[in-house]
Design a protein around this nucleic acid. Structure first.
Lengths: 239, 239
DNA sequence: CGGCAATTTGATATCCATCAATCGGTGTGG
DNA sequence: CCACACCGATTGATGGATATCAAATTGCCG
């Protein structure tokens, strides 16, 4: 299933014949403060959206996955940075072209607006997690979030697909920490705690096996990335 | 300056002849889980947008002020609640009417999209605060946030207007705590710390005098609600 | 095998939450 | 007018969760 097969993301057709670009891990495609001239669509790999304070504290605002749109901004200047987490390939398109597309076709603009709504909803979940959840709970939410995206990226219709027993964790512990508002050591310890509780098993640094999905969901709280609403719209936070 | 005088919020004209409703403190106008049939525009007073977990933990996602739009959702169900913090008056409008307005006029839809962008930008700031800042820093940010909204609500062009020496704090300590991801006692202590550092003075529970704006801004971090970008668009987080 | 970086683990410190009074304002009834 | 009760805010004492500092270990790449 390609982007264009999702009618709700109609506007992504601007990327249909767009040139692509391959990214090395760590490679920067958007720098905060620079003029917003380009937008992207992720064909493969994982990216991160970051904001860094004057004193160097870094917050990862979102991870971006396949089919995610990258370059969300109303102003003419990016107010965040976007970098590759893994090897990745993106389709590139000028912002002007996007603006034209949205201006000429109300349907496309409507689709874009819908994507914005999904972004906002996702961010509200992040805000709730950062404000109200303990470290281990945030990590549980995060693992379900990765599982959710794996499912969408691989177009697995079934939530119980055996492939989903294993969660891929492509980013470093420090990336996870900066996303969850923790320190990398705390992330490590929380992984261990989850394992000691019998909810997961660390196969290696970047692969987790889920032993007790129900328990993980309970820990994560009531809502869940597998809720019906979330499965309809394949989008992620901004970029 | 009334809402309609702000061209970027063109779509707010649906509220021009709309009926109004007066709200008591604590009164609920939107309940999470209910069908999304109505939207509002705030004429006066302050509202809060909340999400409550199964275990009762409450996160305030945003405070809403004069001229803010209330009722942001793409789905047919609200996924947050909205209540009055103070006495308030809102203009009421059916969601259908909004949808029609946006569908018939690309300009209006474009304006709406722009509002969404501002909402996302504001939420990214919240995420950064919750993820990276200490209690006293979050409170410093929050006070500047209130000052910012006071300035917009009162249409004060000058950032140094003497009226802005005093910050109105209409909400309770517990509301502040649930917004900043803290406990009410910690909020109290952080107020005291700010006072002991000579940055502010508590005139009474709901009024703060700013003694050292520069110091407060330094504590809050580099960015500031008074940055040029923020002054152009008078909108707030979702509702 | 050797060396570097990332992760994990351990010991300790710090910050914030929790539990428990106390204070202060406000409204009510005597 | 004053006594009292009530509620939010403040302050104090203590505990717990996470950060910080410092190894030790693992994994990865040459």
């Amino acid at each position: 299933m390609r982007p264009l097969d999702r009618p709700q993301d109609l506007f992504l057709d601007i990327f249909a014949a767009a040139p692509t670009r391959d990214l090395e891990p760590g490679e920067v495609i958007i720098s905060a403060g620079e003029p917003a001239t380009q937008v992207f669509n992720i064909l493969s790999g994982v990216l991160r959206v970051t904001r860094t304070g004057t004193d160097g504290r870094r917050q990862i605002l979102a991870f971006l996955f396949r089919d995610n749109f990258v370059g969300l901004t109303a102003t003419d200047t990016y107010f965040f940075s976007v970098e590759a987490v893994t090897l990745a390939r993106v389709a590139c398109c000028s912002r002007r072209q996007l603006d034209l597309r949205l201006a000429e076709d109300p349907k496309a603009e409507h689709a874009f607006l819908n994507m914005m709504f999904r972004v906002v909803e996702d961010m509200l979940d992040v805000v709730f997690s950062l404000g109200q959840r303990a470290a281990i709970e945030r990590l549980a939410v995060f693992l379900l979030y990765l599982r959710h995206w794996r499912r969408l990226s691989d177009h697995l219709a079934d939530d119980t697909d055996p492939l989903l027993r294993e969660i891929q964790v492509p980013m470093s512990r420090e990336d996870i920490a900066d996303f969850l508002g923790l320190k990398k050591e705390t992330v490590s310890r929380s992984f261990r705690d989850l394992e000691e509780r019998g909810l997961i098993r660390r196969l290696d640094t970047h692969r987790i096996r889920v032993d007790d999905l129900t328990g993980l969901r309970q820990l994560a709280g009531s809502w869940d990335f597998a809720s019906p609403r979330r499965l309809t719209g394949a989008t992620g936070p901004p970029g």
